[in-house]
Amino acid sequence: MSRAEAAGSDGRAAAEAAGSDGRAAAEAAGSDGRAGAETVGSDGRAASGVALGTGSGGRAVSLAWTLGLFRSELSLTFRRWRTLALLAVLAAVPVLVGVAVRIETSDGGSIGGGGPDGGGGPAFIAQVTNNGLFLVFTALAATLPFFLPMAIGVVAGDAIAGEASAGTLRYLLVAPAGRTRLLLAKYASTLAFCLVATLVVAASALAVGALLFPLGEVTTISGTRISFTDGLLRALLIALVVAASLIGVAALGLFVSTLTNSGIAAMATTVGLLITVQIVDQIPQLHAVHPYLFSHYWLSFADLMREPVYWDDLVKNLGLQGLYAGVFGSAAWARFGAKDIAT
């Protein structure tokens, strides 16, 4: 049973699982969330190679199994109608923003009265008319505070609780999936969803931006100009940072998911916590707790558009996400490991 094999913090448990059953799994789902979201894709591909028997003996089978569970989780997540609906909503946001900007500026005017910061709306929106690439940044800035984390909250909140309420959890555990492994596979697939969701927003924004607005050299926040290719790379980097910004919410959602046997309750609680945190982050009197809120440094991704890049808040953001992953990952592990599965 997982309780016996997993000791110490979540991170250590992940490392143990990796030791016996495959290093790649720990990379995909380890305590260091930053690496997690970025390596998930390539690990998924590596799994098929192992399954064909490139490894040696029982170790290869065991590795294939660990990745097999993760792949099974992944395909389960993306075959749910709900997941596809969430991704469709996320893909629609850049379309709405792009069309709105296009209509607003069709008379040759600029957004929001032409002030230097556009006077309102998401970051970068004023530059969209000059360069469609900025729609990527605008769309990410528009979806990061709510749409993206809400989607993650739904997927993460449902991860354990949904299986518990459907009764499928008991069959996974007697298979036996192992509680620690199942949790790691669930977390890894949630992180993969973070990445896919962010990339869907970015790709949709890029397509809409290219369709409705001119593309070309990019002016950074610092005023320097970089080539369009460099701009694209920055956009990709920003998408990865945005995906990594969701690591904390994913861990929180997974923890909530271990507390209840109702998928709906877990989703609602996670999304409720998200809204609460966002509100608390807006109240100046509570500034003492602000640096500890998982959403506090989210918009620091814009600093990647400076020349040179301003790293301080980016690093703080990623560190905070790692902290949330560690704390709530451990809490989820402790709770799930000792839970009576009575559904």
């Binding site: 399954a51 028997g53 089978v61 065991s62 294939a64 199994w65 097999g68 569970l69 792949r71 099974s72 389960l76 075959r79 749910r80 109608w81 459907a166 009764g167 499928t168 008991r170 069959y171 996974l172 298979a175 036996p176 999936a177 192992g178 199942l182």
Partner: peptide, 25 residues
């Protein structure tokens, strides 16, 4: 307890992938 949105066959594949001794091949 089954995944309603999966076929019968895919339900079995799902449960089998959770078994550490089950050979994926």
């Amino acid at each position: 307890a089954l995944y309603g949105f999966l076929s019968g066959r895919d339900n079995l594949l799902r449960y089998d992938s959770a078994d550490p001794t089950a050979d994926p091949r």
